[in-house]
């Protein structure tokens, strides 16, 4: 197999990896906020339920979670799903997992805010919603950005776990090519791709951080 052909196949895998990456962020970043509010809820049953959810998501391998989301509907409920469900299962699994991590990052950021900011907003007459979106959230985002960057970098590498249920993302492709060629070239090329993706992630997140440097 020519080097070019290998790169072309890896690139098609790379597109799938990117799809997983962006769809996961699109789903998990907002869902994480909802989960964080559930976790901080004063309504105990909800709080406990969300705590359990976060604990399971963080306490078991993502690989296992993907398998459960993919095979669960059949083995547990006897529902037969088409093969296109593979990709959907990956996205659901990733979003559920990452939302739990993002939720904890949001929570740490929100709880670290000084009481004085809430009190100042309260005395000035801001509503609860105004206080959160205008006063608290912008400061929380600045403070949690480094932790979010960490998580996003991990996500880039984690997309390779879609391999577990046979979604043809970059790592799956690399493994197939490498086996066919009895050579490590494809794996190393894939490694370089992951590395560069993360360089881009780190660069972009760095720009965001810089942009928020105007206040302390």
């Amino acid at each position: 197999m020519a080097f070019e052909v290998m790169l072309r196949e890896l690139s098609s895998g790379l597109l799938v990896s990117l799809e997983i990456f962006f769809l996961t962020l699109l789903g998990a970043l907002p869902l994480g906020m909802i989960v964080a509010f559930g976790r901080m809820s004063k309504f105990k049953p909800l709080q406990l339920l969300v705590k359990l959810y976060i604990s399971i998501m963080r306490g078991t391998p993502l690989m296992l979670q993907l398998l459960v989301v993919y095979f669960g509907p059949y083995y547990i409920f006897g529902i037969r799903l088409t093969s296109s469900y593979r990709f959907i299962a990956v996205i659901i699994g990733f979003i559920l997992n990452y939302a739990a991590y993002f939720a904890e990052i949001y929570r740490s950021g929100i709880e670290a805010m000084s009481k004085g900011q809430y009190e100042a907003a309260d005395v000035l007459g801001y509503s609860k919603t105004q206080t959160f979106f205008k006063i608290i959230l912008p400061q929380v985002i600045k403070n949690i950005l480094p932790s979010i960057t960490n998580e996003v970098i991990t996500l880039v590498k984690d997309t390779s776990l879609a391999y577990t249920i046979g979604v043809a993302e970059m790592f799956t492709q690399a493994k197939i090519i490498s086996a066919a060629q009895s050579s490590m070239t494809a794996l190393i090329a894939a490694g370089i791709f992951y590395y560069f993706m993360n360089l881009v992630v780190a660069y972009v997140m760095g720009l965001f951080e810089k942009k928020l440097n105007y206040f302390k």
Partner: peptide, 26 residues
Amino acid sequence: GLVFQNFNLFPHYTVLKNVIDAPISV
């Protein structure tokens, strides 16, 4: 109105925005 010991200004707002935001949005 209340003036706090630790000011509690909004750090992400300019001086002007700190002053005018509540009259405008509240």
